[in-house]
C-alpha cells in the first residue's frame, strides 16, 4: 500500500532549481534511501515532506491525502512526520527525558515511562534520562533524537544524514541500531544521505538524485548493477568503464569479448563492469592479458593500474587482493565473471 507519493515536485530558490519535477512512491513500512552529491536537492526534498518548506509546484500525498501543493499546505505540526536531523537537533535547554517527551501531550509520569521505554528501544542506558544534551556523545545524541521522533509514533520517519556527523565505527553501529528499531516498529522511513554505502545498506528502495531530479529509482541491487548512466555507476561504487562495440549480446572490449544482457543493442558504447566481476591473477613467465604499471599498497588490497596489451594500450585502476600481486611490472591474467552492463 502506498504511504507517500510525490508528484511533479518543484522548488526554486531564486533562479536555482533545487527540485525539478520529482516523483517518488514509498510503500507502507518500506525504507527508501535518497542518495546524491551535496547540493543535489535531497535535503530540500526532505524539508518539503516535513512541511518546513512549501513546493512551487506539484503535490505531496500522505496516505492518499494531499498534504501539500503550491496553494495549500498542512502545517508541519499537524503532519505527524518525524524527522531526525544531521546533528540530532536536541533542545539544548531540556534534559534527555524532556527532549523525548517534548511532543507528547501527557502527564509527567506517563512521559517518563514512555521516555524510558524508548531509551531502552534505542539501546541507551536509563541513567541518561536526567542528562542534558551536551553531556552526551554524538552517537547518543542521535539515538535520543530518534527516540524523540519515535515517541509520537509518526506515520513517516525522515532521516536527514543522521549518521554523517559520527565517526566511522560509531556510524555503522548507530545505523544498524536505527535500522533495527525502525523495522521493528514498522515505520516507513526515508533516509537522505550522500554516502552511497550507507544508502545501499539501509534501503529497500534506492533513489539516486542529481541536479534536483531522480535519475534512477529502484531496488539497491538493481540500481547498483544496472545503473542508467556512467555518472550513477561511478557514484554508487567502484566502476570499470570500457569502450565497446556491441552486436547481438556480445561486446568487443579491450578485455576481450564480454557477454551483455541486452540482445537488441548494436553499435559503439561504453559498458560497465564492477570490480567484483574481475579477477586478476599473476602469471609467471607468460604474456598474460596485461601488465601492472602502478601499484599502491593498501593492506588487504592493492590499488593497481592495469594496462592491457593489444593495439591501443587501454588502462584502468582496480583494487585487487594484495596477497598475489607483488610489484609494478607483474604480468597478470584477467578473468571476467558475469555479463557487462550497457547504459541504455
Amino acid at each position: 500500500m502506498t504511504l507517500l507519493q510525490l508528484n511533479f515536485l518543484n522548488k526554486h530558490f531564486g533562479a536555482v532549481a533545487a527540485l525539478d519535477g520529482v516523483h517518488l512512491t514509498a510503500t507502507s513500512g518500506s525504507r527508501t534511501a535518497i542518495v546524491g552529491p551535496s547540493g543535489c536537492g535531497k535535503t530540500t526534498l526532505l524539508r518539503l515532506i516535513a512541511g518546513f518548506e512549501t513546493p512551487d509546484a506539484g503535490e505531496i500525498l500522505l496516505d492518499g491525502h494531499r498534504i501539500a501543493d503550491a496553494d495549500a499546505q498542512v502545517p508541519a505540526h499537524l503532519r505527524n512526520i518525524g524527522i531526525v536531523a544531521q546533528d540530532g537537533c536536541l533542545f539544548p535547554h531540556l534534559s534527555v527525558v524532556d527532549n523525548i517527551g517534548f511532543g507528547l501531550k501527557a502527564e509527567r509520569a506517563v512521559k517518563l515511562a514512555r521516555a524510558s521505554e524508548l531509551l531502552d528501544m534505542v539501546g541507551l542506558d536509563q541513567a541518561m534520562l536526567a542528562r542534558k544534551p551536551d553531556q552526551l556523545s554524538g552517537g547518543q545524541q542521535q539515538r535520543v533524537a530518534l527516540a524523540r521522533a519515535l515517541a509520537r509514533k509518526p506515520r513517516l520517519m525522515l532521516l536527514d544524514e543522521p549518521f554523517s556527523a559520527l565517526d566511522t565505527g560509531l556510524r555503522a553501529a548507530t545505523r544498524k541500531a536505527v535500522t533495527e528499531v525502525l523495522s521493528t516498529a514498522g515505520i516507513t522511513t526515508i533516509l537522505v544521505t550522500h554516502d552511497q554505502g550507507e544508502a545501499l545498506a539501509f534501503a529497500d528502495q534506492l533513489a539516486v538524485m542529481r541536479g534536483g531530479r531522480f535519475v534512477q529509482v529502484g531496488h539497491p541491487r538493481e540500481v547498483y548493477e544496472r545503473p542508467v548512466d556512467a555518472a550513477t555507476a561511478v557514484f554508487l561504487g567502484e566502476a570499470v568503464l570500457l569502450p565497446a562495440v556491441v552486436t547481438a549480446g556480445r561486446a568487443q572490449t579491450p578485455l576481450g569479448v564480454l557477454a551483455v544482457e541486452d540482445l537488441e543493442f548494436r553499435g559503439q558504447t561504453t559498458v560497465l563492469l564492477r570490480p567484483e566481476q574481475i579477477s586478476v591473477r599473476r602469471v609467471e613467465g607468460g604474456e598474460g592479458d596485461g601488465v601492472i604499471t602502478d601499484l599502491v599498497f593498501g593492506g588487504s588490497t592493492c590499488n593497481v593500474c592495469l594496462t592491457l596489451g593489444g593495439t591501443e594500450a587501454f588502462s584502468f585502476r582496480i583494487d585487487v587482493p594484495s596477497r598475489d600481486i607483488r610489484s609494478a611490472g607483474d604480468r597478470v591474467a584477467i578473468g571476467v565473471d558475469g555479463p557487462a552492463h550497457i547504459f541504455p
Partner: peptide, 29 residues
C-alpha cells in the same frame, strides 16, 4: 538561534505559538 530547533519542534506537533513559548523563549533567557 538555530531555526532547525524550531522546525524540529513543529515536526513534533507543536503549533507556532507553542514553539515560541517552549523552544524560542527558553533560549532567549
Amino acid at each position: 538561534l538555530d531555526p532547525a530547533l524550531e522546525d524540529q519542534a513543529a515536526s513534533l506537533g507543536l503549533a507556532p505559538l507553542a514553539v515560541f513559548r517552549r523552544v524560542v523563549l527558553p533560549q532567549l533567557r
